[in-house]
Write a protein that binds this DNA or RNA. Structure first.
Lengths: 254, 254
DNA sequence: TTTTTTAAATGATAAAAATCATATTTCACC
DNA sequence: GGTGAAATATGATTTTTATCATTTAAAAAA
């Protein structure tokens, strides 16, 4: 008997944080996602330890993998799926700070500093996620310099991205940031097979929380870009009709 | 004969990036700043290597230690002084992304990922800075797990700070962010001896570039807080008269 | 299917913040 | 100590963006 599945609340964050079932997990050494992840240079003993101790689970859309304020017991490796990482601001408003795709690792930051999570990880579409227990991951880090370096590189890159995002948030108008966000979504998740539709479905509210604006403003500006034939809206699907123009609007000189 | 010292340009970023002279450098093992830095657990060979290869220089106010776009040849360790790290946005506007104080290390991010600097480090007041060459720092990292972990912790903390700052920038009004910035300045540099004045002198423009707003808006809101007797303005010096009220205005529930 | 709920769209208005303009002050330099 | 440049201050105005209100459309639930 399986417990009934509750629906996500209006802000897309669900109370349920228990995965529904496990999936057939391959050995980490044969996982093709590994080569584009921080484990790309991890071999032998370390990789075996990880592989033997991991738990692989399926999370349904809307489920929360970990919660802001919760204690980290390990790291999560996204095998397949899409996950948003968000911080709830003082007035209860969500700010999406990162999006994860296949091969991305989550929850390492809090584990490294041994603090509670400062973000919530919510599944955007049904996902397969592997869990690596704290001790295993930490001892892998200790025993594997290459892994440590990959970790440092990952953190460095995310820090750079966060600082650039910060600068744009402070200096660029919403329209430019929205265009930038659409390009970012396209870079992160690509297009759906044989189409110009970005391969992720977000609510308008989520797009606004990614851009850092009010939902109505995001809706208005999306409609505007739609009228200008730069993008195409079809329900939650967003197609890019004129990539060059979208890039021009985003006004990125980096 | 010493070359004449040019003045900082209007945005506070100087072309000169050559330190004027070296200072009497103590051995790293006896540097008291070390205990609060990433080198707190570094000993023996690694520390000696660093100590023997470092170059210690004095930078004058306004001088640039490294430039956005430049190549990193090592890391900088701030022995004594105050430094701002800023990114120049697309329209040429400065965004201050970090402030460094005694014991802080700079330039590691770009070095770890082997990319050009994405920020500029400018000296806010005359500072003593040690330079550690790339190879020495990197091999210390490789040979010293404790240092690697400190590095990861530092990056993790900065990432958390950046993400929180991002959220506040997106969600909080300027007045709250200004109050938060003043509290941050106080936390970072403390008060001047026996006074309530924050121990750093920034231009109003720099304060605005830290808050993420227009200079005039920052000036106006500072005057407002001054009138409300929450802070005291005396030239570039900012005194905190009512810390409780300032914290209330900052509206931090974290 | 029909009902109910939730999300999206759009108009009207208000609030916030930026920009422009112009004093006034401060400070470095002669 | 005076002079000019830069920084600060402040008012007026415009622009941007958020908020509120309402309608329409879409998606879940009965």
């Amino acid at each position: 008997m399986v417990a009934p599945l509750r629906k996500p609340t209006q802000n897309g964050i669900d109370q349920i944080n228990q995965p529904m079932k496990t999936f057939e997990h391959v050995d980490c050494s044969r996982c093709d996602k590994r080569h584009h992840s921080i484990f790309c240079n991890t071999h032998g003993e370390q990789l075996e330890d990880i592989s033997n101790s991991k738990t692989c689970s399926v999370y349904k859309k809307g489920q929360v993998i970990f919660h802001e304020g919760g204690h980290p017991f390990g790291v999560y490796c996204l095998n397949k799926g899409k996950i948003k990482l968000s911080i709830i601001g003082d007035e209860g408003k969500e700010q999406i700070v990162r999006l994860a795709r296949d091969g991305d690792v989550l929850g390492y930051r809090s584990m490294l500093v041994n603090e509670r999570y400062n973000a919530t990880a919510t599944v955007l579409e049904d996902s397969q996620v592997c869990f690596i227990p704290r001790e295993v991951f930490m001892s892998a880090l200790k025993g594997d310099t290459a892994l440590s370096f990959e970790m440092m590189k990952l953190l460095s890159n995310q820090l750079r991205e966060a600082e650039i995002k910060l600068t744009h948030l402070a200096q660029k108008p919403v329209r430019e940031r929205l265009a930038e966000t659409l390009l970012f979504l396209k870079e992160t998740y690509g297009f759906e097979p044989d189409s110009q539709y970005i391969a992720v479905q977000l609510t308008r509210e989520e797009i606004a929380n990614l851009v850092g604006t009010a939902t109505e403003t995001a809706i208005r500006l999306l409609s505007e870009l739609n009228k200008e034939q730069v993008i195409e809206l079809s329900g939650k699907k967003i197609g890019i009709l004129d990539l060059i123009e979208l890039m021009r609007i985003a006004n990125l000189n980096d």
